[in-house]
Design a protein around this nucleic acid. Structure first.
Lengths: 208, 208
DNA sequence: ACGCTACCAGACAGATCTGTCTACGGCAAG
DNA sequence: CTTGCCGTAGACAGATCTGTCTGGTAGCGT
């Protein structure tokens, strides 16, 4: 008999079209901090402050949100990598070493938990879109590094890119365990040594 | 009024005391192939061919099974690492390079999906037993490598151990993406170069 | 023969998670 | 003003997952 309830609060509205960004920002935070499976849709919706229907309008399934998350991570991380490289100056060889500063910066950030892509791949079966997206990201990164190595004029850019990628991934992977800045420093030093050696100079401990 | 059912099949029994091993073997396979959260208790129980009560007798909670799984992984992987090192002969410097053959072998194995510890850490929050166990494993490995570097008489065993650990973790981390043997080969070559350089000799591309 | 222990089978409870659906309110363009 | 779109609120279905409980069976030592 009583009317449905009288609708208590007017409900703070999200400005039209911004709901998607709010959801994505929350997902970015929760997916990275807790993992893909551990972060539930309900939590993301609640912390975004949007309605469930709004969420499913923009992201028909959880996987779609995960893909959008990885896209965003790619943009952010690639940007940091490029910025760190450019901060080292115009010399490609210096950039190959300087990009490792992005790793050190990441280590120092609060809540650092390693590479979002590696973590995502660890939770997804191979063949899934999530897995493929991760592989694509890693290939882009290696191609970029190879390009720098090429510009630096090393005899075997492929091999140097491989080595540096291994160091970078190693540093990122160990980041999921402890955000030890020593690992980042060691990665940078080792990279400097490898780049010097590739250029035919003496190894850096002799050059210092 | 009717009796409960007459108990159709006699049910193939597991010899007493072996149920635990069967469960652990199944968990080893499923946890590694699918991930910690993706592999459900029910599936593990069904594929082990044991009863639910038996399972919970040996592993009161899923986390206990995960810890036992990590313990087993530690034993297996550490064994492979040591075996690969010893196969390289008595020279510690050669062992430091030879241990990377374990990585190449792992890459070639069917169903290879990178480092079980890194994958586990990616799914578990820091501070949990699972996370701690992973950190302990990585520290043991690095300590062992540092010991070899020490025996080899390099000037800075700590730094070399750091570098080699980064390469190893990088190779393992990229294994979750694609089991590319080229990454393992590159890791080994780079390790050889770093070891040579640490010993004060020329880098290996000059020595070959 | 008896009892103890280790096992099997599977129902069940309770939580959680994804995704759908209904109902309603505000805002802007026509 | 009315119509349609975008948003909120939240109930609901259905699946899945962890962990408990009951009841019965096989084998072994005594």
């Amino acid at each position: 008999m009583t009317p449905p309830a009288a609708t208590a609060a007017p409900a703070a509205r999200t400005p039209a079209g911004q709901a998607r960004e709010k959801i994505l920002a929350t997902a970015f935070r929760l997916f990275y901090a807790q993992g893909l499976r551990a972060a539930g849709i309900d939590t993301i919706i609640a912390e975004s402050g949007v309605a469930k229907a709004t969420f499913y309008k923009y992201f028909p399934a959880k996987d779609d949100l995960i893909l959008a998350y990885l896209e965003k991570v790619d943009g952010v991380w690639t940007g940091q990598l490029h910025a760190a490289a450019e901060a080292a100056g115009p010399d490609p060889a210096a950039q190959l070493v300087g990009l490792f500063d992005a790793l050190a910066s990441a280590c120092r950030r609060d809540g650092y938990r390693g590479c979002a892509f590696i973590n995502a791949a660890a939770e997804s079966a191979s063949g899934t879109r999530i897995h493929e997206r991760t592989v694509a990201h890693k290939e882009h990164t290696r191609a970029w590094i190879r390009g720098l190595a090429d510009q630096a004029g090393v005899p075997d850019p492929d091999q140097l890119a491989r080595s540096l990628t291994l160091l970078l991934d190693g540093g990122l992977a160990s980041g999921v365990l402890d955000a030890d800045p020593a690992a980042a420093t060691a990665a940078r030093n080792t990279a400097a040594q490898l780049v010097s050696a590739s250029l035919g100079r003496n190894t850096d401990h002799a050059a210092s």
